[in-house]
Amino acid sequence: MSATSGAPMIEVRDLTKNYGSFTALQGLTFQVPKGQVVGFLGPNGAGKSTTMKILTGYAGQTSGSAAVAGIDVQADPVAARQNIGYLTESNPLYEEMMVKEYLDFIAEIRKIPTDRKSVRIKEVVERCGLGNMIGKDIGHLSKGYRQRVGLAQAILHDPDLLILDEPTSGLDPNQIVEIRNLIREIGEEKTVIMSTHILSEVQNTASRVLIINEGKLVADDSPENLTHEEGGTLYVVVAPKNGTPLEHNMVERMLTGLPEVSQVNAHEITDEGALGFKVRYSGEDPRRSVFESVVKENMVLLEMRRHHVSLEDTFRKLTSND
């Protein structure tokens, strides 16, 4: 019954899922060790929800295996599910129940002992900021509070693993920040795997990112590594010092002549009389030498900024299908 110690919290091996002729997952393999907060990314229809449904036992795989806390989800679904708290994508709730009734019901199904039940409900209500809502019908709650109820339901039995399917979708920016903070708090002590479309969310909360596309894993790394690239790009804007117009070719030659720079392209700018360049470099940061050579050539450096690769860039690069 209890979790096998030493086993990874999630172990997915060669998972395949077909819905009729549609292949949702094709040979997905990954592991999540205990205590990690993982962002699970991918375009719509990539298989994120399907993977989560298989882990929670709501969907069955076509082939391959999935285990939670060392327990195979097919072989012993009841034992596996005891370790899981699950917030589904649509977060379905019993509209006619009060928040308190609903959590009571979940506690009873989860077999939380009666003597611990009310204490535990009080804890999660406080944690999820539902204090003023416990006597309200769920059907009357705002989307943000409904999401909190769903989260309260998922953490009620103090599970080791939280599976959150798009926990912030459909929320307004304030609610997103609130729910994100709540997830970050929970993530300090639990293993969390969450899917989302908002990449900044992952950058802030997750220590690891899994990106899947068309049912296959295309990236598995930390957000830092995924946004790191060899060399980079500088945007440079130069202007003449004393009214004599600048010659485009001359400046371009000067920039290309720098040892770190690999490629120079013109870059559209709006400043009158100034010239813009997009400077690609590999290896060393060329900002110092760009500055010095611009000064030496008697020009003014109006602007110089380094372009950072965002998770969005990486995501688009890995998941665009052309």
Partner: peptide, 13 residues
């Protein structure tokens, strides 16, 4: 309502 997903992912048969 979709609540069946909730019930069927609880640790019960």
């Amino acid at each position: 309502a979709g609540t069946i997903e909730l019930l069927l992912t609880m640790p019960i048969r």
